[in-house]
């Protein structure tokens, strides 16, 4: 069978589909001061998965605000700097109108994902962190 660390090199998704892979990638991102990108990516996935049963509406609003506050509001944050102004406006607008949609962070997540795919993920595969592990 293919060892997990070889699978991680196939695609970002195979890496993010494995707990050990996530842990190692996070360690690398932390050294590069951009672990927030990974947290944001998972927060967006978790938000989308929140089910719409009763009593959840308040939780959704609270969570959407928490995600916005932690990752997007501060323009100097690593996540905020990678997200397009129009995307940020869209999210802010959803929050202000309390129009909480499961897909409201999808575009922002896609932008961060592209950034990881084109930048941090290839760097990770070449990093000492990964090579030593492998």
């Amino acid at each position: 069978p293919t060892p997990p660390y070889l699978k991680w090199a196939e695609s970002l998704h195979s890496l993010l589909d494995d707990q050990d892979g996530i842990q190692l990638f996070r360690k690398f991102l932390k050294q590069e001061d951009c672990a927030d990108m990974l947290d944001f990516w998972f927060a967006c996935s978790g938000f989308r998965k929140l089910e719409a049963h009763e009593g959840n509406e308040e939780k959704k609003v609270k969570l959407a605000k928490a995600i916005y506050k932690k990752f997007i509001l501060d323009n100097n944050g690593i996540v905020s700097r990678q997200i397009k102004p129009a995307t940020k406006c869209f999210i802010k607008d959803c929050l202000m109108r309390r129009h909480i949609d499961p897909a409201m962070f999808d575009q922002a997540q896609a932008e961060i994902q592209t950034m990881m795919e084109e930048n941090t993920y290839p760097l990770f595969l070449k990093s000492d962190t990964y090579l030593e592990y492998a």
Binding site: L16, Q19, F42, A43, C44, G46, K49, L63, K65
Partner: peptide, 20 residues
């Protein structure tokens, strides 16, 4: 503030793959 952080952590964990 704590509960906001907890909520965020819970959300992040919920999206992670389960241990195989």
């Amino acid at each position: 503030i704590d509960s906001e952080d907890d909520l965020l952590q819970e959300c992040i964990s919920s999206a992670m793959p389960k241990k195989k």
